[in-house]
Design a protein around this nucleic acid. Structure first.
Length: 437
RNA sequence: GCGGUCAUAGCUCAGUUGGUUAGAGCACAAGAUUGUGAAUCUUGGGGUCGCGGGUUCGAGUCCCGUUGGCCGCCCCA
């Protein structure tokens, strides 16, 4: 054995694993539909340039990429965003706005494995195109929240950190920083939680020591945890774009409050996320204990559709990955035990009885009933054990006696009560049993 | 790409200073049991001890290499 292994970082799903995984997807999909999102899908293999265009040349090192037999440079998709931007961009003028789409799809990244991170994983992606205002963020953050609460997770288990790239840019501009310095400060902000003061080393290397007053204000800004504090810090600056942006914040937080979601939301300007393409609000969901990597992340990317060759089209989106999420559910005991149970198990007396049973089995299965039976002739005692182990609610007993009489014995496997019915009534009786229960 | 750590049956693990033919529990299968269930008993299948090399009379055990897992760093769209 073990002559062949699965590739490093790839996962195999035996039935017990697959059923748990499917549970995630089922609830995510139901939630997305509840929010009025339409499902789409797209190729797993894409032109390498699609990702280079979005993320830069360096991205190739983290992709499963190769040259196909036609000489095309291709890559397994590492994310959905460029693909969905292409889909939407291509038909933007024909699609009814707002465009609310989601997908549940598998992605591939050539990375070192870690807890909650593999080389292949599944994400729910949800995006809204065509809505420039914070109404889109309200919708997406609400959906993100419900994608977690649908499993029984509460505000004790997770929270959503909300930040804003625009506000940072306006604020740093008001403090007199130019664009390159702004980017360097945002990089420092991104790293600050992890590295503390050393986070500013990159800035220092580029531009020399950061102005002490600016740094103090940046650090103070990181402490802002509420809209009130945000307004207190920014309103005095009297900056036009900042004033307008604060109105967006009020609208966003007001909407989430009206939906009863405030308890999940924390203002936290320490969230920056990838600098490459986010353009406005950004948000990330974390477990409260802080033991796991991010559960989900998203934000606004108003320039990307156009950058990838489509029309100018505002967009916001988020993604939830399955690996960290499953870890959290396991930790909190919220992963149900799934029994892959049959509805009906047939106990079969012998070759003659088998023929009679097969006819009914086929009829029941055609109506969608999950019916199972032993493939080989085995003793009755063993068959009843098999019936119990199968998780079925009913056993249908086809013994020689019953077959001779033209009847079938029906046993309720929960209370062990039995009764006999004529064979041509069996399918109706079984149907009634399951409709009633 | 870098560092730490681990690898014995499907799973959890034992295996003495290197010493006969590598074990247990669980799981699986057959039987006791051709008409009634979570029990019991008996029996069985299943291992190139991750792989390769070295030391040795002798290696699951010691040494080197390698592959893979886990944890962390870099990165994280």
């Amino acid at each position: 054995m073990a002559t062949f292994q699965s590739l490093p970082g790839f996962r195999e799903f035996y039935p017990d694993d697959q059923v748990r995984r499917k549970h995630l997807f089922d609830l995510w999909r139901r939630t997305a539909h509840a929010f009025g999102f339409a499902e789409y899908d797209a190729p797993v293999l894409e032109p390498l340039d699609l990702y280079k265009a979005k993320s830069g040349e360096e991205i190739e090192g983290q992709l499963f990429s190769f040259t196909d037999k036609g000489g095309r440079e291709v890559a397994l998709r590492p994310e959905m965003t460029p693909t969905v931007c292409r889909l939407v961009g291509a038909r933007a003028s024909a699609l009814k706005r707002p465009i609310k789409w989601f997908s549940i799809a598998e992605f591939y990244r050539y990375e070192r494995m870690q807890k909650g991170r593999g080389r292949c994983f599944t994400q729910l992606n949800a995006d809204i195109f065509g809505e420039p205002g914070p109404e889109a963020e309200i919708e997406l953050i609400a959906m993100l929240t419900q994608c977690l609460t649908a499993f029984g997770l509460t505000e004790q288990d997770f929270y959503v950190r909300l930040s804003d790239r625009n506000l940072w840019c306006y604020y740093l501009a008001a403090l007199g920083l130019d664009e390159p310095r702004t980017r360097a400060v945002l990089t420092a902000v991104d790293r600050h939680e992890k590295y503390g003061d050393e986070a500013f080393q990159g800035y220092t290397d580029q531009f020399g020591p950061i102005d002490a007053e600016v740094k103090a204000k940046v650090l103070a800004f990181l402490q802002v945890k509420s809209l009130a504090a945000l307004e207190a810090t920014l309103a005095p600056l009297g900056s036009e774009p900042i004033t307008a942006r604060l109105a967006d914040w009020r609208k966003l937080l007001g909407g989430l409050q009206a939906m009863g979601l405030s308890r999940f939301i924390e203002v936290d300007l320490g969230v920056v996320r990838g600098l490459a393409y986010y353009t406005g609000f950004v948000f990330e969901a974390f477990d409260r204990k802080g033991e796991l990597r991010a559960l989900a992340g998203g934000g606004r990317y108003d320039d990307l559709v156009e950058k990838l060759g489509g029309p100018a089209l505002p967009a916001v989106g988020f993604a939830i990955g399955d690996m960290t999420f499953a870890l959290l559910l396991e930790q909190r005991g919220l992963m149900p035990a799934f029994a892959q149970a049959a509805d009906v198990y047939c106990v079969i007396g012998g070759p003659a009885a088998r023929a009679a049973a097969f006819a009914d089995i086929q009829t029941l299965r055609a109506t969608g009933r999950r019916v199972d039976y032993p493939m080989k002739d085995v003793g009755f005692g063993k068959q009843f054990k098999l019936a119990a182990d199968s998780g079925a609610k009913l056993a249908l007993i086809y013994g020689d006696d019953e077959v001779a009489k033209g009847t079938v014995k029906i046993r309720d496997l929960n209370d062990r009560a039995e009764h006999e019915v004529p064979r041509d009534h069996v399918t109706a009786v079984v149907r009634d049993f399951f409709t009633a229960s």
